[in-house]
Design a protein around this nucleic acid. Structure first.
Length: 448
RNA sequence: GGAGAGGUGGCCGAGUGGUUGAAGGCGGCAGUCUCGAAAACUGUUAUGCGGGUUUCCCCCGCAUCGGGGGUUCGAAUCCCCCCCUCUCCGCCA
C-alpha cells in the first residue's frame, strides 16, 4: 500500500513512477487525489458535528443531575438534529473512504530508482556463475529421466489430481526431502535464519497484506467451508486461501503488531508447499515440472529497519545463490525491470538455472525488497527506542529455492550417458550417502 | 461436538449509562538525591486519522476498552450477532 500522503504531496511524481509499471494507473492516482481531498473535508465536518454532540451530551447530563429537565429536553432535540446531519455526513465520508481505500489497494509498489525501466527486454543480467555447458551425448529431458529412473509418476498424478501435480516416488521423494533439508540447514546454520512452519491455509487478510489480494485473486486456490456448515453458521469461517508461497503466512506473522526495540532484524525461513492456479499455461511451458499447481519451496523472509533493506536484498540473493553453488548448478542473477516485477516489489532479482537438455534458463528464485509496501498493508511497525514513535518495517522475501526447476536442472545436467544421474556432494549426506540415481532393482510400475 | 468462564492501555487490574481515553499497581523513560548504583520522591508514558501551526516542535478535534450492529441526548458499561482465549467432558491423527 502506498502512503496516501505521498499521493497528496506529489501526484505527478507517483503517476510517473507507476507509469513504468503499466499505463492503467494514472487515472486511479488522479481519482485517489480527489477522493483524499474530499475525504478530509468530510472528516472535518463530521468531527465538528461529533464534537458538538459530545459537548451537548455532557451538558444534558449536568442539567439532569441538577433537576433541570425542561432545558435538558430542549438540548436533546438539538442533539437529535445534529445526529441526523452527522449520519448523512458520515455516510458520505464512508463512501469516499471505501473507494479511496479500495483504489489504493490495487496500486502496485513504486519501483526503486535503481530498477531499469521497461519490459522483458530491459532485464539486466547482473552476474553469471558457471557455464551454460552441454552434454557430450544426446541426453534426455527431465520428464524422461524422472520416469526412467522411477522418480516421478506423472500419469498417476493425472489420475488422482490432474495435470500440474506429481507423485514423487522412492528416490524421487527422498530427493525432495533432501533438497528441503539441505536448504533449511544452510539458511539456519550458515545464514542465521530461524525456521518457521506456518499454516498452509490462511484468511483473506494475509494475502491482502502481502499483495496477492485483491488484484490477483484468481491465482490462488480458494478453500471453502462445507456448504452445510455455512448455512448453519453464515458468518463463521467463510473461506481460506491455500498459500501460493510461504511469504504469505510468514510475512503476516506480525500482522497488526508493533515490534519492540531490539527485535529487528527478524530473519525467518520456512518450507511450505505452494499452490498456484497458473491458469492458461499449457504445452511446452508446462511440460513436466516447469510450471505446476503444487510445488515445494523454501522461503526466506526478513523484517528490518528501513535503512537496512537495500543491504538485505543483496545478502538474501547471495544466500539463495549459495544453495545453487552447493548444488553445482550454473546460474545467473537477473535484475528485473519495472514492467516485470511482482505487485508488491520495489526491486527484484531473479535467479535462473540453466537446464542443458531444455536449453533454457529456468527461474528458481525471486528475491524482492518490498520496502514498507507490505508492512503498510499488514500494519507491521517497530520502535527504535522504548518511547519512539512506531515506524513501518521493511519486508523482504527470497526463494531459497523453489524445488521443481532445481530438480529439472539437477536431472538434466547431471545425467551420464548410461542414463544414471550423479548426486552433488553436498546433497549426498541428505540422501543416505547415495552418489548416483540409478533405476531401482524393483521399480514401482508407472502405469498409463 | 457438549457445558461453563472470560476478552479493558506494554503487563496486571478497577470500572454496569454522564468531564473515564479510561482509577490503582507493575514495567519503561526523564529528573531529584548519590562518587556511582539501589531505594525513595517528582514528572512522564497508547494508536490512528484530520485541522492549525510548522516542519518534525507544539496546540486542537475525532475515533478506538476483541470485531460488527443496535438502544440512548450520551455506551467500556445495556441488547443482538460474530471472533478469540481458558477450563471440564466427548471424539480423534
Amino acid at each position: 500500500m502506498l502512503d496516501r500522503k505521498k499521493i497528496r504531496d506529489d501526484p505527478e511524481l507517483i503517476k510517473a513512477k507507476l507509469a513504468t509499471r503499466g499505463d492503467e494507473y494514472a487515472d486511479i492516482v488522479d481519482r485517489i487525489f480527489q477522493l483524499d481531498a474530499d475525504e478530509r473535508k468530510a472528516q472535518v465536518e463530521l468531527d465538528g458535528l461529533r464534537r458538538e454532540r459530545k459537548e451537548l451530551s455532557k451538558e444534558i447530563g449536568r442539567l439532569m443531575k441538577g433537576g433541570n429537565e425542561a432545558q435538558a429536553e430542549a438540548k436533546k432535540k438539538t442533539v437529535k438534529d445534529i445526529n441526523e446531519k452527522a449520519a448523512a455526513v458520515e455516510e458520505h465520508f464512508n463512501a469516499i473512504q471505501d473507494e479511496r481505500v479500495s483504489l489504493l489497494a490495487i496500486l502496485p509498489n513504486l519501483p526503486d530508482d535503481s530498477v531499469p525501466v521497461g519490459g522483458e527486454e530491459a532485464r539486466q543480467i547482473i552476474k553469471e556463475h558457471g557455464e551454460e555447458g552441454s552434454l557430450a551425448f544426446e541426453g534426455n529431458d527431465h520428464v524422461d529421466l524422472a520416469t526412467a529412473l522411477n522418480l516421478i509418476d506423472f500419469p498417476a498424478a493425472g489420475r488422482v489430481s490432474g495435470s500440474g501435480f506429481q507423485f514423487y516416488v522412492g528416490l524421487g521423494a527422498e530427493l525432495q526431502r533432501a533438497l528441503i533439508n539441505l536448504m533449511l540447514d544452510i539458511h539456519i546454520g550458515e545464514h542465521g535464519y530461524r525456521e518457521m512452519r506456518p499454516p498452509f491455509m490462511v484468511k483473506p487478510e494475509a494475502p491482502f497484506g502481502t499483495g496477492q489480494l485483491p488484484k490477483f485473486k484468481e491465482e490462488m486456490y480458494h478453500v471453502f467451508t462445507p456448504l452445510e456448515q455455512v448455512e448453519h453458521d453464515p458468518a463463521g469461517h467463510p473461506d481460506y486461501y491455500l498459500v501460493p508461497t510461504a511469504e504469505v503466512p510468514v510475512c503476516n506473522y506480525y500482522r497488526g503488531c508493533i515490534l519492540p526495540p531490539e527485535t529487528l532484524p527478524v530473519k525467518l525461513v520456512a518450507y511450505t508447499p505452494c499452490w498456484r492456479v497458473e491458469a492458461g499455461h499449457y504445452g511446452h511451458e508446462a511440460r513436466g515440472l516447469r510450471r505446476v499447481h503444487e510445488f515445494d519451496k523454501v522461503e526466506l523472509v526478513v523484517l528490518c529497519a528501513p535503512e537496512e533493506s537495500d543491504g538485505f536484498l543483496e545478502r538474501m540473493t547471495g544466500e539463495a545463490e549459495r544453495v545453487l553453488e552447493l548444488l553445482e548448478l550454473p546460474y545467473r542473477r537477473v535484475l528485473l525491470p519495472t514492467g516485470d516485477m511482482t505487485f508488491a516489489s520495489a526491486k527484484t532479482y531473479d535467479l535462473d538455472v540453466f537446464a542443458v537438455v531444455s536449453g533454457e534458463w529456468l527461474e528458481v528464485s525471486s528475491a524482492s525488497n518490498t520496502g514498507d509496501f507490505q508492512s503498510r498493508r499488514a500494519n507491521i511497525r517497530f520502535r527504535r527506542d522504548a518511547n519512539a514513535k512506531p515506524e513501518f518495517v521493511h519486508m523482504l522475501n527470497a526463494s531459497g529455492l523453489a524445488l521443481p526447476r532445481v530438480v529439472i536442472a539437477l536431472l538434466e545436467n547431471n545425467q551420464l550417458e548410461d542414463g544414471t544421474v550423479t548426486v552433488p556432494d553436498a546433497l549426498q549426506k541428505y540422501m543416505r550417502g547415495i552418489e548416483r540415481l540409478t533405476p531401482p532393482e524393483n521399480p514401482l510400475p508407472f502405469l498409463d
